[in-house]
Amino acid sequence: MKLLPALEACTPRGNLQSNMSTRAETKAVLRSADAVCFDVDSTVIKEEGIDELAKFCGVGDDVAEMTRNAMGGAVPFKKALTERLALIRPSREQVNKLITDHPPYLTEDIKDLVDRLQQRGVQVFLISGGFKSIVEHVAARINVPLSNVYANKLKFYFNGDYAGFDETQPTAESGGKGQIISLLKEERGFEKDAFIGFGGNIVRQQVKEKAKWFVTSFKEIIEELEN
């Protein structure tokens, strides 16, 4: 499973040199970015959405272990997603009730960060291996247009029972989040220059090692934008 860094900052094609190699250069990209793509689970929100859905449906422990294996790359993402959903089998009613009764917890300062980015004219995107119905709820709370949400789509029968998920979505594949970013670059003329790792909710060593700038609070990013 390819890990998506917490934030991807994109600038107009050719505006800044690609493959930024230092923290200072990464910060410069952020300050001049035309778009920022956020991962969602354990980044924009504090929890892993699929684990919370599993808890709600009574199979939390088993699914949490499967999620850990998927995050570590031991299992291809689509296989892990298929297996977890086969165990959860969430109905439409359960998904809706989860959102109503136990809405995801936003990470501290994420709303402020998104507001400040948008005030600067930056387009904000949410790209998630989670479920669109949940991610769209999060997007609405932080004023991200639903057209800027990319996530997996659950399918239901007419009676609301679980019927699988849309396996054609790039986000259902290993490396799918990166495919979405490449698509955005191609369609909108963005050039990906840098990423920022985020460890405010959970520290993933692979992300920390890869990131040229690793933060544990969105306040650090807000402060950089104010410089």
Rank of each mutant, 00 (worst) to 15 (best):
L16C: 03
L16Y: 00
Q17D: 10
N19A: 13
M20Y: 06
R23H: 03
A24N: 12
A24F: 03
E25Y: 02
T26P: 01
T26K: 04
T26E: 01
L30D: 06
L30I: 09
R31C: 03
E48A: 00
C57N: 15
D62W: 04
D62C: 02
V63N: 06
A64V: 10
P76S: 03
P76I: 07
F77G: 00
A80T: 07
I88E: 01
R89W: 05
K97L: 13
D101N: 14
P103K: 02
L106A: 00
T107W: 04
T107M: 09
K111Y: 11
D112S: 10
Q123C: 03
V124D: 00
V124I: 15
F125H: 15
I127F: 02
I127L: 01
G129V: 04
G130D: 08
S133V: 06
V144S: 07
P145E: 09
L146A: 01
S147R: 13
S147F: 03
N148C: 11
N148L: 00
V149D: 10
N152Y: 11
K155V: 08
A163D: 01
E167Q: 15
E173D: 15
G176W: 07
G176F: 07
G178A: 05
G178M: 10
Q179T: 12
K185A: 11
K185V: 01
K185M: 09
E186S: 11
F190M: 07
F195C: 15
G197C: 13
R204G: 01
V207Y: 07
E209Q: 13
W213M: 04
S217D: 08
F218L: 01
F218C: 06
E224C: 15
N227V: 13
